[in-house]
Lab assay of single mutants.
Amino acid sequence: KEMRNAYWEIALLPNLNNQQKRAFIRSLYDDPSQSANLLAEAKKLNDAQA
């Protein structure tokens, strides 16, 4: 469930391009235990690109 939530949050971040989203989501599938960390990194990048 945590992975699914992280997937959708990443997919809906407005300032990431599709390539960036795909990279984060690929990492999510590679290591679901890192969901919270990956989401935090994606949000950080999203904010930096705002």
Score class of each variant (00 low, 15 high):
Glu9Ile: 15
Asp30Asn: 14
Asn46Ile: 01
Ala6Trp: 15
Ala40Phe: 11
Asp31Arg: 12
Glu41Asp: 09
Ile25Trp: 15
Leu13Pro: 00
Trp8Asn: 10
Trp8Leu: 13
Pro14Ala: 10
Lys1Trp: 03
Ala11Val: 11
Lys21Arg: 10
Trp8Tyr: 13
Lys43Trp: 12
Asp30Val: 13
Gln19Tyr: 15
Gln34Cys: 06
Tyr29Pro: 01
Ala23Lys: 12
Ala42Pro: 00
Asp31His: 15
Asn5Ala: 13
Pro14Asp: 04
Ala42Ser: 03
Leu39Asn: 01
Ala42Gly: 01
Asn17Ala: 05
Asp30His: 15
Ala40Pro: 01
Lys43Glu: 03
Ile10Pro: 00
Leu12Ser: 12
Arg26Gln: 06
Gln34Leu: 08
Leu16Ser: 00
Lys43Gln: 07
Leu13Ile: 01
Leu28Met: 08
Lys1Arg: 05
Leu45Phe: 04
Gln34Thr: 07
Ala42Cys: 02
Pro32Gly: 03
Pro32Trp: 07
Glu9His: 14
Gln19Ile: 09
Ala42Lys: 00
Leu28Ala: 02
Asn37Val: 12
Tyr7Leu: 11
Ala6Met: 13
Ala11Thr: 15
Glu41Asn: 13
Leu16Lys: 00
Asn15Glu: 03
Ala50Leu: 09
Asn18Lys: 12
Glu41Met: 15
Pro14Gly: 06
Arg4Val: 12
Lys43Asn: 06
Ala40Ile: 12
Glu41Gly: 05
Ile25Leu: 13
Asp47Ala: 13
Gln19Ser: 11
Ser27Cys: 05
Gln34Asn: 07
Asp31Gln: 13
Asp30Met: 15
Lys43Tyr: 14
Gln34His: 09
Ala48Asn: 10
Asn5Leu: 15
Ala36Gln: 11
Ala36Pro: 07
Asn46Ala: 04
Glu2Asp: 13
Asn15Met: 05
Leu13Thr: 01
Ser27Phe: 08
Lys1Ala: 12
Ala48Thr: 11
Glu41Trp: 15
Asn15Phe: 13
Ala11Met: 14
Lys21Leu: 03
Ala23Thr: 13
Tyr29Trp: 11
Tyr29Ala: 08
Leu12Ala: 12
Glu2Met: 06
Leu13Asp: 01
Ile25Lys: 03
Leu45Lys: 04
Phe24Asn: 00
Leu39His: 02
Lys1Gly: 07
Tyr7Trp: 12
Ser35Lys: 14
Arg22Val: 09
Arg22His: 09
Ala23Met: 15
Asn37His: 09
Gln20Ser: 02
Leu38Gly: 01
Leu16Met: 02
Glu9Lys: 15
Ser33Ala: 10
Glu2His: 08
Arg22Gly: 08
Trp8Gly: 03
Ser27Asp: 05
Ser27Arg: 14
Ile10Asp: 00
Arg26Met: 14
Gln19Cys: 07
Ser33Gln: 08
Glu2Ser: 10
Arg22Trp: 15
Gln49Glu: 05
Leu12Arg: 15
Leu39Ile: 08
Glu2Arg: 07
Asn37Asp: 05
Ser27Val: 06
Phe24Leu: 04
Ala48Pro: 02
Gln49Phe: 07
Ser35Asp: 03
Asn46Trp: 01
Lys1Met: 10
Glu2Pro: 07
Ser33Phe: 05
Ala11His: 14
Leu38Pro: 01
Asn37Ser: 07
Ala6Leu: 11
Lys44Ile: 08
Ala40Lys: 12
Ser33Glu: 06
Asp31Tyr: 12
Asn37Leu: 14
Asn5Glu: 11
Glu2Tyr: 02
Lys21His: 01
Leu28Cys: 03
Lys21Phe: 03
Asn15Tyr: 15
Met3Tyr: 13
Asp31Asn: 14
Asn37Gly: 07
Gln20Met: 04
Asp31Met: 13
Arg26Ile: 08
Gln20His: 02
Met3Gln: 11
Ser27His: 09
Gln34Tyr: 05
Leu28Arg: 00
Gln34Phe: 05
Asn5Cys: 12
Asp30Leu: 15
Ser27Ile: 08
Ala36Arg: 12
Ala6His: 06
Asp31Trp: 11
Ala40Thr: 08
Leu28Ile: 09
Lys21Val: 03
Asn15Ala: 07
Arg22Phe: 13
Pro14Met: 09
Arg22Lys: 06
Leu28Ser: 02
Leu16Thr: 00
Lys1Pro: 10
Ala6Arg: 06
Ser35Tyr: 14
Gln19Arg: 07
Leu16Ile: 05
Gln20Glu: 03
Ala40Val: 08
Ala11Arg: 15
Phe24Met: 03
Ala42Val: 02
Ala48Val: 10
Asn46Thr: 01
Glu9Trp: 13
Gln20Leu: 03
Ala23Trp: 15
Leu12Pro: 01
Asn15Gly: 05
Asp31Ile: 07
Asp31Lys: 13
Ile10Glu: 00
Gln34Ala: 06
Ala48His: 09
Asn18Ile: 11
Asn17Thr: 10
Asn37Ile: 14
Ala23Pro: 01
Arg22Asp: 05
Asn46Val: 01
Ala23Phe: 14
Asn18Tyr: 14
Asn46Phe: 01
Asn46His: 02
Leu39Asp: 00
Met3Leu: 12
Asn5Lys: 15
Leu16Phe: 01
Arg26Asp: 03
Ile10Lys: 00
Ser27Ala: 13
Ala36Lys: 14
Lys1Phe: 07
Lys1Val: 10
Asn15His: 10
Asn18Cys: 12
Pro32Phe: 09
Lys44Gln: 07
Ala6Val: 05
Leu39Glu: 02
Lys43Gly: 03
Asn46Glu: 01
Asn37Thr: 07
Phe24Gly: 00
Lys43Asp: 02
Arg22Ile: 10
Gln49Cys: 05
Asp47Cys: 07
Ile10Gly: 00
Ala50Val: 14
Asn18Pro: 11
Gln34Asp: 06
Ser35His: 10
Asp47Ser: 12
Pro14Lys: 11
Ala23Asn: 07
Gln20Phe: 02
Asp47His: 13
Tyr29Glu: 06
Ala48Glu: 14
Ala48Cys: 05
Tyr29Val: 08
Gln19Val: 12
Arg4Ser: 12
Pro32Val: 04
Leu45Val: 10
Asp31Val: 07
Asn17Lys: 04
Tyr7Pro: 03
Leu16Cys: 00
Asn37Pro: 03
Glu2Val: 07
Lys44Val: 10
Gln34Val: 05
Leu16Pro: 00
Arg4Asn: 08
Asp47Asn: 10
Asp47Trp: 13
Arg26His: 05
Asn5Met: 13
Lys1Cys: 13
Leu45Gln: 05
Ala6Gly: 04
Ala36Val: 10
Ala6Glu: 04
Glu9Asn: 11
Lys21Ser: 01
Phe24Val: 02
Tyr7Ser: 10
Ala23Cys: 10
Gln19Phe: 14
Asp31Glu: 08
Leu16Glu: 00
Gln49Asn: 09
Ser35Arg: 09
Gln20Ala: 03
Asp30Glu: 11
Met3Glu: 09
Leu39Ser: 03
Ala11Phe: 15
Leu12Trp: 11
Gln49Asp: 03
Lys44Glu: 06
Glu41His: 12
Ser35Trp: 12
Leu45Glu: 03
Ser27Thr: 07
Trp8Phe: 12
Ala48Ser: 13
Gln20Lys: 02
Ala40Glu: 07
Lys1Thr: 09
Gln19Leu: 11
Asp30Ser: 14
Gln20Asp: 02
Lys1Asn: 12
Lys44Met: 12
Ala50Trp: 09
Asp31Cys: 12
Gln20Gly: 01
Asn37Met: 13
Ala6Lys: 08
Ile25Ala: 04
Asn15Gln: 04
Asp31Gly: 04
Glu41Thr: 09
Met3Asp: 07
Met3Val: 11
